[in-house]
Structure formats: structure tokens, C-alpha cells
């Protein structure tokens, strides 16, 4: 994604500030809003927006690479009312993390960020976000142990590596020589790592994923193309996504239902096609990585 030009689209600051009220109208339950990117801390005025949303009673979270968080930024975010932050942390070993992130020194900065944020742990959950890949599979267990011992993070949450954005390949992307290093090559080893994670979870290690999610990873690494049978997509009923151009979607492979620059959220979600799309999504049986990672839901 970082290869794209900076002009690729940016939501209007004033619009985002005013969107809190609209979000309150359309969200229910925990009313969770997650800022992601790119790197959301590169968005000017994000702290102010978090403050406004928190005041609105929304539960605000963020996914960040952590590199831009110093002690002041940590305080600002906590003061603004941020409830949950997922910091990318690919290994306890600096070389691995810095290699995967493509930036020297990022490991050190991430750990510092976690420490700064951890000061506010009473109100802010700081979670390590680790993408399981071929490059760190041998270090996963040590990384969990580190998260438990160091107390920088409250939890560790795992994702499974999928085709990078703009990988140009969809089928068997992991077999192309550019990407083979990202894919865990030894299925037995991968199984044993994931089995151990499941044990550790049972033993009380702070692993955020439910056991069934870890089991799904095990299956995914054996056969990335196959959708877990019997699972139906819940995204249409639970999640809306808005991209930097303001387009709102329920499903990442369908067209936008509307644009928040032009329409109110409530009006978009009351649109005539929305229920049809939701029904279609519930019975969709296509292979989709969205359900493997961020949007996994226990059956």
C-alpha cells in the first residue's frame, strides 16, 4: 500500500469530525469505531476526532504501526479517550520485525510506544498485533512469552499472512519467488506452533484470538484457498467500512453503497439494495481472506 501516491484519497477533516453523531445513529451494541490505514496517525487531526467520538459515546480503537507514538502522543491518545490500540509487532527479535516492516529501528520504537501507552492501561488496552508468516513462524512462541513477561502489551493478537496489497497475484501468490519467504513452508512445524499457541491460551497466556480462530489459521496454512465449510459471512450484519474516498461498503468485493461525502450514513444504510446485499452476503460461499483475519467471528 505504501507504494501508492499520497494523493490517493483523504477524508475531509470537518466531515470526519461531524461524522460521530451519524455513527451513533447507525451503530449498536459496543458502537465500535476503528481507525486504520495506511497509518492512521499520519492523518492530521486524528486525536481531535477521537476526542469527539469518545464524547459521543463511541468506543474508539486504532490499528497503528506504533512508530509515531512518543510519550506525548500516547498521552494525547489516552486523554482523547482511545480505548484500544493494536500495535503491529511481528517478533520480539528486532531483526525480524524491522525486516518485515521494512524500516530499521521500528522494533525499538514500537516497544517504546507500547511502554508509553501502557502508562494509561487503566483506560486504554494496548494489544500486540502479530502477522504469522514464514519469516517469524519460529519466533511466535517466544513472542507470546515475551508479551506475557514484559507487560508492555495487555494481549497479543494474531493474524495469518495473506497476499500483500497489490501483489498482482491472487491464486497461489505464495508460490511466487517474490513472496515465498512470507509463507510458512513447513506445514508440520506450522501445525506444532499453532497447537502450542492453543495450549498456551488454555494455560492462561494473554492470547486474544479464540481457540477456534487459531484452529482456522491451522487449516488456512494447509489450504489457503479453501473457505472453512459451513461458515457464513456475518460482515453485512455487523461491519461497515469507509475508505479514504468516503465510499461505504459492507463487503470489500462489492461496489460502494454510497459515499459519506454526499449522503448521511443512515440514509445509505436504509437504501433499498442494502438488505438484498446483506442476504447475499449471508449465503456467500466465496473464498475471502476478510474472514480469516480481522473479521473472524466464532460460530
Amino acid at each position: 500500500m505504501w507504494k501508492l501516491p499520497e494523493t490517493s484519497g483523504c477524508l475531509d477533516n470537518h466531515l470526519l469530525e461531524r461524522l460521530g453523531i451519524q455513527l451513533n445513529e447507525v451503530l449498536s451494541g459496543d458502537k465500535e469505531v476503528v481507525f486504520s490505514g495506511g497509518e492512521p496517525l499520519l492523518y492530521d487531526g486524528i486525536t481531535k476526532i477521537i476526542k469527539i467520538y469518545s464524547r459521543e459515546g463511541l468506543r474508539v480503537g486504532m490499528a497503528s504501526n506504533g512508530v509515531l507514538i512518543d510519550s506525548k502522543k500516547a498521552k494525547d491518545l489516552a486523554d482523547a479517550g482511545l480505548k484500544n490500540i493494536q500495535i503491529s509487532f511481528d517478533s520480539l527479535y528486532p531483526d525480524t520485525h524491522d525486516f518485515l516492516r521494512g524500516v530499521a529501528g521500528s522494533h525499538e520504537r514500537v516497544l517504546k510506544a507500547a511502554q508509553y501507552l501502557n502508562v494509561y492501561r487503566d483506560t486504554l488496552t494496548v494489544c500486540a498485533q502479530t502477522v504469522i508468516s514464514g519469516r517469524n513462524i519460529d519466533e511466535i512462541i517466544d513472542t507470546v512469552q515475551f508479551v506475557k513477561d514484559s507487560k508492555c502489551f495487555s494481549h497479543i493478537s494474531f493474524m495469518a499472512v495473506t497476499a500483500p496489497f497489490f501483489a498482482l497475484l491472487e491464486n497461489n501468490w505464495q508460490e511466487h519467488k517474490e513472496f515465498t519467504f512470507l509463507w510458512p513452508q513447513d506445514p508440520e512445524k506450522t501445525d506444532s506452533v499453532i497447537n502450542r499457541l492453543i495450549e498456551m491460551k488454555d494455560e492462561g497466556y494473554p492470547i486474544a484470538n479464540p481457540v477456534s480462530h487459531l484452529e482456522l489459521f491451522r487449516e488456512y496454512f494447509h489450504n489457503p484457498g479453501v473457505r472453512k465449510s459451513g461458515s457464513s459471512c456475518h460482515l453485512g450484519d455487523n461491519v461497515v467500512s469507509v475508505d479514504p474516498l468516503g465510499d461505504l461498503r459492507l463487503c470489500c468485493s462489492t461496489g460502494p453503497l454510497g459515499n459519506i461525502n454526499r449522503s448521511r450514513l443512515l440514509d445509505i444504510l436504509r437504501g433499498s439494495e442494502v438488505e438484498d446485499l446483506r442476504a447475499k452476503m449471508r449465503s456467500c460461499d466465496k473464498t475471502c481472506n476478510a474472514l480469516v483475519n480481522c473479521f473472524f467471528k466464532e460460530q
Partner: peptide
Amino acid sequence: CCLRCKMCHIWKHKRDDEQVLL
């Protein structure tokens, strides 16, 4: 599109509808 060309404004509002699968 990732560019913002003066001769083509599709990037302003044209977004993919339901896409064709591989």
C-alpha cells in the same frame, strides 16, 4: 486509479461495482 489526472476524472467518483472473480 492511483493518479489524479486532469484529463480523466474517473478517480473522483467512479468506484468498482461488484467485481468479477478471478
